[in-house]
Amino acid sequence: MRKLLILSMCLQLYIGSECSTLPKKIKKCHFGDATCIRDTANALIRSFPKGIPSVGFKPIDVVHVKDTVLINDRQVGGAWYFFDLLNQINYGFENTTITEIKGFDEDPSLTKIEVKGHLPRLIYRGTYNAQGRLLWLININSSGVSESEFLNFHFDFTLKVQTEYRNNKRYLKIYQLVPNISVDRWIQWLENFFPENTDLTIFINKIFNANWVEFWNELEKPILEVFTGVFLSIIEDIFHNVSYDDMFLSNKYENNDN
């Protein structure tokens, strides 16, 4: 009985490792064929906004975001501020259009992989915590619902990868992702920022939205760290589950056809 149980477990693990393949309706491309790879990426986004659990492709219509500290000043003097975002959920990546992809050559470790894209509207919803002191006069201690809306969201990111072998096949492991982001407009609403003064809460939100560019420039580094995690969460598991050799058609086949 023990041997039978061990054999059964091994068989399940083997089957599981061999079944992580992309659906047949997703067109395979030759290594390095940038146009085909871009079109296939867009087809994947359009056809599977709810993800493909069997290969580790998570839903992109609803993307959960890790808790993030955006501002963390030292709590000294007359002015300091702490602000973090919790339970954030991202909506809108299912409307992404990939405009350019470079890399994904036969040996992906020799070149950087670059991906560019845009989407019309990206929304973050969750909660926030804020504490601080302004000019010795105003103490801030609030929490509530937060919502950010990014209009005409453009992104590009570069990947550096290394390959690891499992089951005699190559799998990609990301060791660096560097994003760049631009938006035409950032609209934010923080509910109950001043719990006992609704007018002041509205005023602060208006100030933020009227001066969003300055806030964006000030917070660019932690914002990019957030999106590094978002992009990794979307693609990392696919690379872990689907072998690089199964994602593409070898150029050798093309040469043989000629």
Rank of each mutant, 00 (worst) to 15 (best):
Arg2Pro: 09
Arg2Leu: 15
Arg2Trp: 14
Lys3Ile: 14
Leu7Ala: 12
Met9Cys: 14
Leu11His: 03
Gln12Ile: 13
Gln12Asp: 03
Cys19Phe: 09
Ser20Asn: 10
Thr21Cys: 01
Thr21Ile: 07
Phe31Tyr: 11
Phe31Gly: 05
Asp33Phe: 02
Asp33Glu: 06
Ala34Phe: 10
Cys36Trp: 02
Ile37Val: 08
Ala43Tyr: 11
Arg46Thr: 11
Ser47Lys: 13
Pro49Asp: 01
Pro49Lys: 02
Gly51Met: 00
Ile52Leu: 04
Ile52Pro: 06
Pro53Trp: 00
Gly56Val: 04
Lys58Trp: 02
Asp61Glu: 08
Val62Ser: 05
His64Ala: 10
Asp67Leu: 02
Thr68Trp: 06
Leu70Asn: 03
Asn72Cys: 09
Asp73Cys: 09
Gln75Met: 11
Val76Asp: 04
Val76Tyr: 08
Gly78Met: 09
Gly78Leu: 10
Phe82Ala: 08
Phe83Gln: 01
Asn87Tyr: 14
Ile89Gln: 11
Tyr91Ile: 12
Gly92Ala: 05
Phe93Pro: 05
Phe93Ile: 12
Glu94Cys: 07
Ile98Asn: 03
Thr99Asp: 03
Phe104Leu: 10
Asp105Ile: 12
Asp107Gln: 11
Asp107Leu: 13
Asp107Ile: 14
Ser109Glu: 14
Ser109Met: 14
Thr111Glu: 14
Thr111Val: 14
Lys112Asn: 13
Ile113Trp: 07
His118Trp: 15
His118Gly: 11
Arg121Asn: 13
Ile123Arg: 15
Thr127Leu: 13
Thr127Ser: 14
Ala130Val: 05
Ala130Thr: 01
Gly132Phe: 06
Leu134Glu: 06
Leu134Pro: 06
Trp136Pro: 10
Asn139Cys: 08
Asn139Tyr: 11
Ile140Tyr: 00
Ser142Glu: 04
Ser142Gly: 04
Val145Ile: 14
Ser146Gly: 13
Glu147Tyr: 09
Ser148Arg: 11
Glu149Lys: 15
Glu149Trp: 13
Glu149Asp: 13
Leu151Arg: 15
Asn152Thr: 12
Asp156Ile: 12
Asp156Pro: 12
Phe157Pro: 01
Val161Pro: 05
Val161His: 01
Asn168Cys: 13
Asn168Thr: 11
Lys169Ala: 03
Arg170Asp: 01
Arg170Leu: 03
Tyr175Ile: 04
Tyr175His: 09
Gln176Trp: 09
Leu177Ala: 04
Val178Ala: 10
Pro179Phe: 09
Asp184Arg: 07
Asp184Ile: 07
Gln188Met: 14
Gln188Cys: 12
Leu190Tyr: 04
Asn192Tyr: 06
Asn192Gly: 02
Phe194Gly: 02
Glu196Trp: 03
Asn197Ala: 11
Thr198Ser: 11
Thr201Phe: 01
Ile202Ser: 09
Ile204Leu: 08
Asn205Asp: 07
Asn205Ile: 10
Phe208Lys: 08
Asn209Ala: 05
Asn209His: 05
Ala210Tyr: 10
Trp212Cys: 03
Val213Ser: 02
Glu214Ala: 08
Glu218Lys: 14
Leu219Pro: 00
Glu220Ser: 08
Lys221Arg: 12
Lys221Ala: 12
Lys221Ile: 13
Lys221Tyr: 12
Phe227Arg: 02
Phe231Pro: 03
Ser233Asp: 04
Ile234Gln: 01
Ile234Gly: 02
Ile235Arg: 04
Ile238Lys: 01
Phe239Ala: 02
Asn241His: 09
Asn241Phe: 00
Tyr244Pro: 00
Asp245Phe: 03
Asp246Phe: 04
Met247Asn: 00
Phe248Glu: 02
Phe248Cys: 03
Lys252Asp: 00
Lys252Pro: 01
Asn255Gln: 03
Asn255Phe: 09
Asn258Lys: 07
Asn258Gln: 00
